[in-house]
Write a protein that binds this DNA or RNA. Structure first.
Lengths: 132, 132
DNA sequence: CTTGACCTTCCCATTGTGGTAATGCCCACC
DNA sequence: GGTGGGCATTACCACAATGGGAAGGTCAAG
């Protein structure tokens, strides 16, 4: 199987397949012509990576998860710990975005949004700061 | 005022002050020695940028907001529209992160997290896909 | 005159993905 | 035997926003 088909079957772009290989997540065999050759095992790996990415794991975490996955004797505790740390990071990030959205929505709620130039949003952005 | 003090008073790193200038958000005068020179007006602009960044506005939005801010006769409707679009983007992103976190937490909840290798998290990442 | 703090520009790294260009292989068709 | 189209290869460049650092100029105090 060449990279095009591997990409189609895994849902990972060919570009990214090469990239993942470049950073050592994947090792593909080469045929005589220099083309990368993939088997079902590789498709499984690529899908694994995609699923992990869909859950927002950064590639460095994916690397560790792959290592654990391949390690038949791993302790699930390690995986769980990694996952929970990531959950925490996701929630922190989500909270931060939510809080930005709330502040901004509050400002927008007090903005007439008509032809007049008067605007609490801009006023807030331009607010003076004490100290500094 | 040189860049160091402008940075201290605005809360924007000197590095970023130069960057904002490079992408045209800011124009600083130069003194004989080639040093950038800032006045109170520039500090206000830098603070404005920082506040907008704190609310998660990308720099392209900041550019527009700055233009509106400087435009004495702007319509607040434009600002409000920009703000609300950004609120929507923030919320979409936050929802996406929350949903990732929820999925992953669900998986983690069913993982023993002990010495045994059995792990639903890895099993899910490695799940087969129909079709494709 | 030296030292140290500050300034300058320029380059590199990050994270993950996409684009694009130049080039090469392979197969099918005439 | 050629030729064209589709797929492959590598090697760059780009994004957004920020930080890091090197190599050098400037200035004020000692």
């Amino acid at each position: 199987m060449n990279i095009g088909q591997a990409s189609a079957r895994s849902g990972v772009s060919a570009k990214m397949v090469r990239h993942y290989e470049a950073i050592g997540l994947l090792a593909a065999a080469r045929s005589n012509n220099g083309y990368r050759v993939y088997g079902d095992r590789d498709i499984a790996v690529l899908r694994f990576i995609r699923h992990a990415r869909d859950l927002g794991f950064p590639l460095e975490d994916v690397r560790r998860l792959l290592a654990l996955w391949r390690d038949r004797g791993r302790a699930s505790a390690e995986v769980k710990q990694l996952a929970l740390a990531h959950v925490a990071a996701l929630e922190t990030k989500a909270d931060s975005l939510r809080s930005m959205a709330a502040s901004l929505r509050h400002l927008a709620d007090h903005c007439h949004g008509d032809d007049r130039p008067d605007c609490p949003i801009l006023e807030d952005l331009a607010r003076k700061e004490l100290g500094r």
